[in-house]
């Protein structure tokens, strides 16, 4: 039986004053029991109750008014690590408004809400693994666990595949953001190439002239039993 060595949590690097996280108390200590894939296969449909509506991926039009901030188009492709597109994945995003404030009771940031922006969107990847959102560039905000850390501008991504085994949570950062080096989540990624994966690229082809700036954020799934779109 192989022991499972991937971490549940990544400790913050030096330079952040956050107290050590006690993994003994909060995360599993025993190695995973490795079982054959055929025994764990459960392909539940992602459709039904959770099916996105046609405008769920346009965060600019979810209210009567126009949201504050820089309007952007975010698009990209979801693939496995072989470059094969992953279709029909439910992509859910959540983010702060332009002031760095979330529509969430737990957000302690003393910043204003935007009555015209919620910050939640969802869509399904198409046959080529592609998704698109229209939204605003979120504001940065101080991190509640460490006053010396800031969350750089970012959009959270939650991906849900057909099986329960296909769950992936990541986030998109913005290129050229000077706060990337002070961001505790980005800083936990030890490998520079992997860190770069979190940073979207400016994509003028995806921009809507005069309306949005375009960004491309491709997502490469690793460590999941991803289902390729075509064989």
């Amino acid at each position: 039986m192989r022991a499972y060595t991937e971490p549940w949590w990544v400790q913050l690097p030096e330079g952040f004053s956050t107290p050590e996280f006690d993994t003994e108390i909060w995360t599993p200590r025993k190695p995973l029991v490795i079982v054959p894939s055929r025994l764990i296969d459960s392909s539940a449909p992602v459709y039904g109750y959770g099916t996105p509506g046609p405008t769920d991926n346009d965060l600019l039009s979810q209210h009567d008014g126009v949201p504050m901030g820089e309007h952007i188009t975010v698009h990209g492709r979801v693939t496995d690590s072989w470059g094969r597109p992953v279709r029909d994945m439910l992509v859910e995003i959540w983010q702060a408004n332009a002031a760095g404030k979330y529509v969430h009771d737990h957000d302690p940031t003393p910043k204003p809400h935007d009555p015209h922006f919620t910050g939640a969107g969802r869509t399904l990847t198409n046959a080529h693994g592609e998704y698109t959102f229209k939204t605003i560039k979120p504001g940065a905000y101080p991190w509640w666990r460490d006053p010396e850390a800031w969350r750089a501008q970012h959009i959270h991504f939650g991906l849900t595949g057909r099986g329960l085994t296909e769950r992936y949570v990541t986030q998109m950062q913005f290129p050229g953001d000077p706060l990337l080096s002070r961001d505790p989540v980005v800083s936990t990624i030890p490998d520079a190439k992997a860190r770069e994966r979190l940073v979207a690229e400016l994509d003028w082809e995806a921009a809507i002239p005069g309306i949005t700036v375009g960004y491309r954020f491709d997502i490469v799934l690793g460590g999941v039993h991803a289902t390729p779109a075509e064989h």
Binding site: S81, W144, Y168, R197, I219, G223
Partner: peptide, 29 residues
């Protein structure tokens, strides 16, 4: 744009996993 991997040495670097954070209930229904 990335092209497809053709050999194991060409496998793409996976996007790092991150935490859900405290506000995930905003987006994940």
């Amino acid at each position: 744009r990335d092209g497809a991997a053709t050999a194991s040495s060409d496998r793409l670097v996976p996007t790092p996993r991150t935490i859900l954070g405290p506000y995930f209930t905003l987006g994940m229904h």
